[in-house]
């Protein structure tokens, strides 16, 4: 399995799961902020970089809008 495949199978669903929780906590902006805060607090920088790299490479298939907005906020 290549490096990108590893991350596509881990960081994308992880980000989506986090977003799914924060969606239930409030409106879109609050969900994005909650997701971003959580990722910043608990993800190692390399994981954030990996997810951003996947987005930049157009390989973040299935990433939810909330998760995408959140990680982009952390760029």
């Amino acid at each position: 399995m290549s490096s990108d495949e590893v991350h596509a199978t881990s960081v994308v669903p992880m980000a989506n799961q986090i977003a799914a929780f924060f969606v239930s906590q409030g409106n879109h902006d609050a969900a994005v902020a909650g997701t971003a805060d959580h990722i910043k607090a608990f993800w190692a920088p390399v994981m954030r970089r990996d997810l951003l790299a996947l987005i930049d490479a157009g390989q973040a298939d299935g990433l939810s809008d909330i998760a995408r907005d959140a990680i982009l906020q952390l760029r």
Binding site: F42, A44, M47
Partner: peptide, 9 residues
């Protein structure tokens, strides 16, 4: 000031 990797990570 940034977190490290968890076991699965």
């Amino acid at each position: 000031s940034e977190p490290g990797l968890r076991i699965p990570n």
